[in-house]
Nucleic acid binder design. Structure first.
Lengths: 191, 191
DNA sequence: CTCGAATGTCTAGCAGTGCTAGGATTCGCC
DNA sequence: GGCGAATCCTAGCACTGCTAGACATTCGAG
């Protein structure tokens, strides 16, 4: 019994090690650098061990994505709780979102850019994702007015997502990043 | 002289054939299916011929991207010219953009999602991209108000881009696609 | 019409990828 | 100490992007 417990704990530890190592490597050198060989070398296990924990490389990326979504949700909650009014909460939320995307670009890609197995929208989406969306909705609620809250939230999320990805891909003028966020917050809260 | 002209024409034709074939294959089976072997087989030339036209696979993707940007710009211009007032132009623009992303997902990915060599923002960006951005700006202009037009255009583009990518990745409720566009147009034009 | 040269193309191969079958090794248990 | 089982690794497959060098083919000059 106790042996089995220890083994399960070791398995869980090793799984965490794999996910964390993959995430660190991706942040340091990009997802292209995350190969099964390189990863297995870093965690000091052979490749087949990776496949005893995950169905494939895509599953590892998905695990990083789920973890990242939880982190993002926590960052957004902290940003909201620091604000004193609704507009402040919206501004803090937007800034926290943009900052997360800028500071953890590889995790952000795994979450929302790369094709992944993580199911969205439907009822089978992971809890972390539902929490994150709920966090968004709670901040947008005061500004949705007569519009459907879920639609409004999807729109707000899309805006932040588009801004984050285009900024990250250097498709927008880097020196105007802050003024873009300010203007977006202004337009979202004006109605 | 005439011989050299014919050769250059043949080269250009072959280049177009490669780009078009890559685009078709990507739209049909996704970019993962576009391998140099498969592509060389489809155009009925060996792999090295691809590399005599392009520096690598990334350059082929970039060529598809530039072509796609030109197509998108043309679609947006046509949508604008069909409208009779400013709000109608904005609505047509948004719909044309979303429709392009939905109908040509592989081309859209090459243009704005996949990491690519195409330089943005700076003065070295290709003409097609500048045209597309100008097209956006001309439609947004009546609604920018006192805000900086370029910033406003970047924001509008980001919104459509975020909406397009999240919709395409099935991260938003599919059945509400139209109402999202309507609400976005409403919010963009209300100020 | 012939022949050297230049141009263009292909065959074959390299290093690296995700993934897996099968054997070796270690481990807990009696 | 010896056995059964769980665990891990070695070696390899089919594939990827890319390239060196051999092989044709075509051109223009005499």
């Amino acid at each position: 019994m106790s042996v089995q417990q220890r083994r399960e704990r070791e398995r869980a530890d090793r799984r965490r090690l794999i996910v964390q190592t993959a995430r660190d490597l991706a942040e340091a050198e990009g997802w292209d650098a995350v190969t099964t060989r390189r990863l297995s070398e870093l965690v000091q296990y052979s490749q087949p061990v990776l496949y005893s924990h995950f169905k494939g490389k895509a599953a590892i990326v998905a695990a990083v994505a789920v973890e990242g979504i939880a982190d993002l949700a926590a960052a957004m909650r902290a940003a909201r709780e620091e604000a004193t009014d609704d507009v402040g909460a919206l501004r803090n939320l937007a800034r926290a979102y943009m900052e997360f995307a800028a500071r953890h670009p590889a995790a952000y890609d795994a979450m929302f850019v790369l094709p992944t197995d993580v199911t969205f929208g439907t009822g089978e989406s992971p809890q972390a994702l539902r929490d994150a969306f709920q966090e968004l909705a709670s901040v947008f609620k005061p500004f949705a007015g007569e519009h459907d809250l879920e639609t409004f939230t999807e729109l707000g999320w899309s805006w932040m997502h588009g801004l984050a990805t285009l900024t990250k891909g250097e498709r927008l003028r880097p020196e105007h990043a802050e003024s873009r966020v300010e203007l977006m917050v202004g337009m979202l809260s004006r109605d």
